[in-house]
Structure formats: C-alpha cells, structure tokens
Write a protein that binds this DNA or RNA. Structure first.
Lengths: 227, 227
DNA sequence: CTGCATTATTTCACTCTCTGCATTTTTACA
DNA sequence: TGTAAAAATGCAGAGAGTGAAATAATGCAG
C-alpha cells in the first residue's frame, strides 16, 4: 500500500479533507440516525462548504461509508497473485474492495458501527459491486483461464461464468455480513459450517475478515449439500 | 391470478391509475431516456398530480418498472408447492417476484424494452430482492426442512443456508438478465451451458422465463466445475 | 335518492439532494 | 516571486420527496 515516497501537501490535504468529511458523516449518522443527518450538517461539522462535500463524495451514503472511488480504482488495477482457489481469491477481491472504504485508520470501527445501525448501507455496498461488475468479473475470468475445468470455454463463456462466481461469493459475503451486523460475534457452527471445522474461536471480535473466512466454509458446505 | 369476482369500482380505478402512471413512465423513459424523464412529465402524461404519483409509486424507477408492493406481498403470501428441487423452486420464486412488476398486460414488452435501455433498473430489481430477503429466505428455509441434507441443521443455520442459496440464484438470474439485456437473444451455449443441452432453440424471443431456465443450467454447470 | 363515512386527489408549502457556473483562494513549480 | 493548475466557495436552480389541509369521488345504509 505504499503509494509514492512523497504524497505532497496537496494530496495530503485532500486525503485529510476526505477523512474529515467521512468522520463527520459517520459520527452524525451514529448520533442522530442516517435519515436525520443532512449534508449541510455533515459539511458544517467537517468545516467545508456543501459544495465541497460533493467534490469528495457523490452522496451521503458514500460519505458515511468513506467510499473513495480513486482508491477503488487503484485497488482494482493492482496485480493480483492467483493462488489456485477461485472462490478464495474472489472473496479476497471482494474483501479488498470493501476495505477500500472506511478511511485509512482504525476509525473503521466507527464505520462498522454505523453499518450495524443502518443495514441499508450494506445494500449500498452490494450496489457498488454490481456497478463494478464488469471490471471484477474480468479479473475473475482471467483466473479461470488457468483452471482446467474452464480452460476449454470461450472467452465469453468464461466471462459469464466469472460473473456467476462473483455473484455467488458476493451473496455469501452478504449473508456473512448480515449475520455479523446482527450479532457482532457469531456462533461458530451456526453459519452452516456445522460439518466443517470453524477456523475461528467463538466469541471472536467483529472482524469482517474472519467473517469472510467463515463465509467460504459456509458456501462450500452449502454447495456440497446441494450436489 | 383471479383475485375476487367483484374488484369494485374503487379498486378498478386504482389499478387503472397505477397502470396509466406506469405506462406513462415507461413510455417517457423509452422516448427521452430515464434521466431526462421527470416525475412532473410522467404525472402530466398520466393526467394526475405529482402528489398522486407518490401515492402510487415511491420513485421514478418503481413507476417505470411498475412495481406494485401490494402485488408483491400477495405473491409472497401465496402458498407454494415445493417440487423437490431447491434451486429450481428458488428460481421460480424470484421469477414470480419479478413478474409482480410490469403491469398486467402485454405492455410488459414495453417495460422490458426500457430495462434494456437502462440496465440500472435491473440493479433496482436486485435491491428489491435484497430488501425482501428476510421473507424470501424464510420461504426457502421452509423448503430446506424437507431436504435430507439440511434436515439436521438448526432453524437458524437453515435460514442462513437459505440466504446463501437465495443469493446464489439471484446472482445467476442477474447474469442471465444482463446477457438478455445486452443481446435480446443469446447464443444457447454461451452461458456456460456448453456441456449441458440447451432447452431453447437459438434466436428465441427475449423471454425472461427461458432466461431463467438457462440460468439454472448455467449455475449447475459452474457448480460442477468448481467442485 | 339522500346523507354520511371513507378513501382519493389535489394544492400548497417546504426540506433536501445534487449540478453547473463563475469567483476566489490555495498549492505547485519554474 | 510570479504564474498556472487545482481546489474551495457562493449562488442559482432543477428535481425528488413529504406532511397537512382542503376538496372531490366513492361506498353504503337507510
């Protein structure tokens, strides 16, 4: 994640402003609720004009989530090492995408708290993935080329299959995050991984990363049961 | 779909008005584009006040899609016969849900045309399913109870598994609809069903129902390849 | 057919989101 | 230090969406 040796004052200030707006939005949403939080209020607390707000975020929801489209693009262009497991790698991809939100520091905890209070924001994340579907599925399709079972398919077929796989993983993440949002810690065996050994101990703190790992196990269990 | 022998004048008029607004919205979206279509314009063409518009639909998108929440609720409360195939039944469920949009007549063709021009509306459909997730997954979970592989799970685990399955099917439908939206007819074998016999001939008219059947085949193929 | 209760429709006033444009301030760099 | 690029701001305005009160249409009992 080391961008350049010299971020420069300009970029530093820009990141700083974005962070301020994001924090203000998240705090206000937590204090008085998402609907009761106006962009005027966010801008005031962040000490910028409302017009400047829209120079950084395209909506209130994006500000709360701290969605930085530049960071997302950078993340997607990053070369990814493919580890041989399509599902696991796709989960990693989605994970990286979600992490491109929420600022840079440990105020991610704040963002998570807001998401817990307002599940609609989770839906917003899903929409984001849907919007990026073309780019994401292209990456997954690239991985599929080196998989024996998919190597014989045409490029177009592989792209469709990549879309399905992406959707499958996203669906699983969705469920995991929903569970995570409802009760911060989840029963280890309640996610359908009853027959699979759960990698994390019970009562674990609410870390999305662990959620994803549980999600993989959960998905594979369901797939087995369905076949 | 026979509601009651006597709908009554009031309800008839209500359905009529909803239809008028829906038609106006779809037509305008097709003529001048979705963004260039204002609620004022829709209301004017439908010959109602803009305030009345919001008594029927909660947004421009819903009006274009003809989303009637009452119809959706009725559809969901309908008793469903479970045929023994979780995936197929779930696809049917999603299909029914989507069909609860688009008015009642053959102006569904109009709605479809608009969706083709504005894929964002498809995303809106996905969001709808996400909003109804609780109710939908409860239905699927009910089906799972009678499946040997899931019978031993707890109710909670089954609900999570139902959510995953719902998400998987939805993802597949998404892909199929995307393909359908891009080129009205799809190459029979290009959806990843290269190894499965395609049920519909090539060059078929753009019927979502067929799309779903292809989607099932597509999904099963991917699942096989992944395992 | 008439009066009354219910429901729909409309009008009005209002808040909030978001955009384009012109202006001013700040930063970068030669 | 001077200048060009970038960012911040103020302003004007369109569009979405809501609440409340007034008005019209409908259903129903008598």
């Amino acid at each position: 994640m080391h961008d350049s040796p010299e971020p420069g004052l300009r970029e530093r200030k820009r990141a700083q402003t974005a962070e301020a707006i994001h924090m203000a939005a998240a705090e206000l949403a937590l204090e008085r609720g998402l609907d009761a939080t106006t962009i005027d209020a966010i801008s005031e607390r962040a000490d910028v004009s409302t017009r400047t707000f829209f120079n950084y975020f395209s909506s209130k929801e994006d500000a709360v989530l701290g969605i930085d489209e530049t960071a997302v693009s950078l993340e997607l262009e990053r070369v990814r090492d493919y580890e041989g497991d399509v599902l696991a790698s796709t989960f990693d991809l989605i994970y990286a995408l979600f992490e491109a939100s929420g600022g840079g520091q440990k105020n991610k905890a704040l963002t998570r708290a807001v998401i817990k209070k307002h599940p609609q924001l989770m839906t917003r994340q899903m929409v984001r993935v849907a919007e990026l579907e073309d780019r994401l599925s292209a990456i997954v399709a690239g991985w599929l080329s080196s998989e024996a079972a998919f190597a014989a398919d045409s490029d177009e077929a592989r792209l469709d299959e990549a879309r399905v796989i992406l959707g499958i993983c996203l669906a699983t993440v969705r469920v995991s995050m929903k569970r995570w949002a409802m009760h911060g810690d989840a029963d280890p065996g309640a996610t359908g991984a009853a027959s699979a050994p759960s990698p994390s101990p019970s009562g674990a703190p609410a870390d999305p990363r662990q959620t994803y790992e549980r999600a993989i196990a959960s998905l594979k269990t369901v797939l087995e049961k369905l076949s």
